[in-house]
C-alpha cells in the first residue's frame, strides 16, 4: 500500500510559504503584497492540516479554522487600508508611504 510521505506535504507547504515570502519581498504593488500574505497564511494552514493527518488528530484542523478566521479579518482590514491609500495618493505603489508624516 502506498501512502503520501509526511515530509512531502510539509515540503509543499514550505515551498508555498517561500513563494509568498518572495512576493512580499519583491513586489511594490500593495495588492500583490496582500495576495502574497494570503499565500503565506494558506501555506501555514496546509502545514497544520498535514500535521493533523500525520497524528490523526482533529486539532490541526481546528488550528486551520483559526487561521482561516485570521485571514478573513486581515484581508478585510488590509483592503480597507488599500482603498484609503488609493483615495489619498491615487496609486498602489507602497514606496509613496515612506513620506507619511502623520
Amino acid at each position: 500500500m502506498d501512502f503520501i510521505p509526511y515530509e512531502h506535504g510539509l515540503i509543499l507547504a514550505a515551498i508555498l510559504f517561500v513563494c509568498g515570502l518572495v512576493g512580499v519581498l519583491t513586489r511594490r504593488n500593495i495588492v500583490f503584497v496582500l495576495m502574497s500574505l494570503e499565500i503565506m497564511l494558506n501555506a501555514c494552514g496546509l502545514a497544520f492540516v498535514v500535521a493533523s493527518s500525520r497524528w490523526q488528530h482533529a486539532e490541526g484542523q481546528v488550528m486551520f479554522l483559526m487561521i482561516l478566521t485570521l485571514a478573513a479579518a486581515e484581508v478585510a482590514v488590509g483592503l480597507g487600508l488599500i482603498i484609503q491609500m488609493y483615495r489619498r495618493f491615487h496609486t498602489v505603489d507602497i514606496s509613496v508611504l515612506n513620506e507619511m508624516k502623520g
Partner: peptide
C-alpha cells in the same frame, strides 16, 4: 524535513 520518514495515512 527530509530526515523524517513517516507515511501519511489518509484516515
Amino acid at each position: 524535513l527530509l530526515t523524517q520518514d513517516v507515511d501519511l495515512r489518509p484516515i
